[in-house]
Computed example of a mutant assay.
Amino acid sequence: MQALHYFNPQSILDTLVSVGAAFVLGSLIGLERQVRQRTAGLRTNTLVAVGAAVFVDLAQGLTGNEGAVRVIAYVVSGVGFLGAGAIMKEGINVTGINTAATLWGSAAVGACAGADRIVEAFVAASFVLAANTLLRPVADRINRNPLDEESRESSYTVQVICHGRERAVVHDRLIEWLEADGYPARHVEQIPFGREDVHIQAILYATSVVPEQLDAVMERVEQMPGVTHAFWSASAQDG
């Protein structure tokens, strides 16, 4: 029987040590996540580490180090898809990125253990835990500090409400005057507004403006025939 042919007590002991190390280290990483009640907690991180260790250990036993290297590459990409499932976007808010990165770290720990690099697995797990614990208060403190207005990047939007018959002229003059003051438009959109009016919205390339300059442009636009409102606004950019 092939099963008896492949039965090797020394190989089984080696696998037990590798998978056992992945189990312990993955559990430590997952325990920290479970305490913080994250999406991927104790069991998920443990299973990721154990699964990576088993795949790498099996490949190494069958084809040696070359096969283990190929499987590690597949583990990296496979866990990337798993981590993507933990990332959720609700409006402008994105959550789960740290959880996905932790799963990736657990897979790296398991891969080290499966390749019989136990010391490296302990080192990797230590740094993953340190990133999630020691750096957490540092990140929280930074997030609580408001940004100075000078260092904040903003997106500037110019908005004009005009009569539909005048929209072509208003559009051309608006773009012309903005470019003359050094504020070219990155995107311009015309949206129906009521029965006869049109809402012209222009998003500028600039990340900072001189308010007086834009105010002057808006005053000129508002004096044009058919224009009822002309104003600009600023909003903080993501990332």
Rank of each mutant, 00 (worst) to 15 (best):
V123H: 02
N143Q: 13
V69P: 02
D57Q: 14
N132T: 14
A49I: 05
A68R: 02
V138R: 07
V128Y: 01
G80D: 02
A111K: 05
N65G: 08
A113T: 10
G110W: 10
A68G: 15
N65L: 15
A115C: 10
V94Y: 06
Y74Q: 15
I97H: 08
A124N: 02
L62G: 01
T102Y: 01
A84Y: 10
T46N: 02
R152Y: 02
A100W: 00
P137G: 11
L42G: 04
T44E: 01
A130D: 01
F127R: 03
T95G: 09
V56Q: 02
V94D: 07
E120S: 14
F122E: 00
L129I: 15
S106V: 07
D57Y: 10
D57R: 13
V50Y: 04
A53M: 06
I97Q: 08
S154G: 01
A52W: 05
R136D: 03
G91P: 10
G96F: 06
E66G: 12
N143V: 05
N145I: 15
A139L: 13
I72V: 15
E90K: 14
S126W: 00
G91I: 12
R141D: 03
S126G: 15
I97S: 04
T99C: 06
F127L: 13
A125Y: 04
G96L: 07
G105Y: 06
A59N: 04
N143C: 05
R144N: 14
V119I: 15
A130F: 13
L129C: 13
A131I: 11
G83L: 10
T63S: 11
V48C: 07
A52I: 08
S151G: 11
E66L: 10
Q60A: 12
D57K: 12
A53S: 11
A101K: 05
V128H: 03
M88L: 15
S126L: 12
V76P: 06
R141I: 11
S155Y: 00
N132A: 13
A68P: 00
W104N: 03
P137N: 07
V123C: 08
I97A: 08
L82K: 09
N65W: 11
D57L: 09
A121R: 08
N45V: 00
V119A: 13
S154P: 00
W104S: 05
V69G: 04
I72S: 03
G96I: 03
D116M: 14
G67I: 04
L47I: 09
